[in-house]
Amino acid sequence: MSATITCPICGRRSIYEFRFGGENRGPRPFDDQATAQQWYAYVHLRTNAAGPQQEWWYHRDGCGTWFTTWRDVTLDCEVEAKEGKNE
């Protein structure tokens, strides 16, 4: 349980106000047709990096913004963006 998340609009707020949206994997790479492998890889596979990762968060009980932030999952804390990795 990381205690706070920083919303780009509202600032640093209690994590209870947010909803986790998973690691950032970029936009969906296919249109209406996809091979089973493409679909499976995008919808169900995750990197699960042990360390900092860029994640999506939604400020549900707040401004209603989807945004990305970096969090070190081993420390459970927001961290500075990994260089050159920001999208």
């Binding site: 209406d32 996809a34 089973a36 679909w39």
Partner: peptide
């Protein structure tokens, strides 16, 4: 309907 990346359509095809 094409070109909107409609959520779930890829799975419906499969």
């Amino acid at each position: 309907k094409k070109g909107f990346k409609t959520v779930g359509v890829a799975a419906l095809h499969q």
